[in-house]
Simulated scan of single mutants.
Amino acid sequence: MEAVSVAPRVLSFPVLNEITKGFSNDMKVGAGSYGNVYKGQHADGKMIAVKVLHYIPGLDDEQFQKEYRNLANLQHENIVRLIGYCHETFGEFIDYKGEKILAQTIKRALCFEYMQNGSLDSYISDESSGHDWSTRYAIIKGICQGLKYLHEELVPPMWHLDLKPGNILLDENMVPKIADFGLSRLFGGEQTHI
């Protein structure tokens, strides 16, 4: 079943700051090479995951745009859905060699549907993790369907390049969703993947 296509919406940094309680450690649910992920809770109780990208000189806008483009059009029940983004620049006075200067601070974040059951790696640490065979089979099948969508149904196809249990997230019904496309690549017809 395909997900309903909804364009990601712009979310302001102050709103993201508020719903993550100031990006507090209590709301932190993960960290990766490109950013930290926080749980955000709107006033109506709706939860989202907010990935705040790290400052990487020279790569910030490039990585942000790449990940946004890779995620914005992915519409499949086994792919984590991008629901919003933030890209804002603030002026801030800082000390520099004993003087106050106005510096630009850029805030970038990608917002995703929140996966209540975390990542698959927390469920494969022992033999059964308390789930029956039909649940485990549904997880395997969902991952395969997500990969089939990326490799065969998407034009041009996309290769994840960092697929691991930590990048498979599980929603409240244990439906698997492939996440973290920071290293993914789009391949046209003239390119091959080794």
Rank of each mutant, 00 (worst) to 15 (best):
T105G: 02
Q65S: 03
I106Y: 10
V50Y: 01
T89D: 10
I83E: 08
T192L: 11
K51W: 12
K107G: 03
H87I: 06
S125T: 09
N73A: 04
I168P: 01
M174A: 06
G40K: 14
H54C: 08
D162Y: 12
M158I: 15
N25W: 00
H54E: 06
G58V: 05
K148V: 01
D121A: 04
L154N: 14
D44H: 12
F90M: 01
A138I: 00
P176D: 01
Y114F: 11
S134K: 06
G91M: 15
P165L: 03
K177Y: 02
A43S: 11
I139A: 10
L59P: 00
A31C: 03
G142K: 05
D180A: 00
V15R: 04
H160Y: 15
A103G: 10
W133F: 07
A7C: 07
P14T: 02
Y68S: 01
P156D: 11
I56D: 05
S129T: 03
G166F: 05
H193R: 12
T105D: 12
S122L: 00
S125W: 05
V10I: 10
T89V: 12
S5T: 08
I168D: 07
D95V: 15
K100E: 14
G188P: 07
L150F: 11
I83N: 01
D61G: 07
E92R: 06
K107H: 06
G182H: 04
A103H: 15
R81F: 00
T135V: 13
S134N: 08
E152D: 14
H42L: 15
I143S: 09
L71S: 09
K177S: 03
K107D: 00
V50E: 01
V80D: 05
A3N: 08
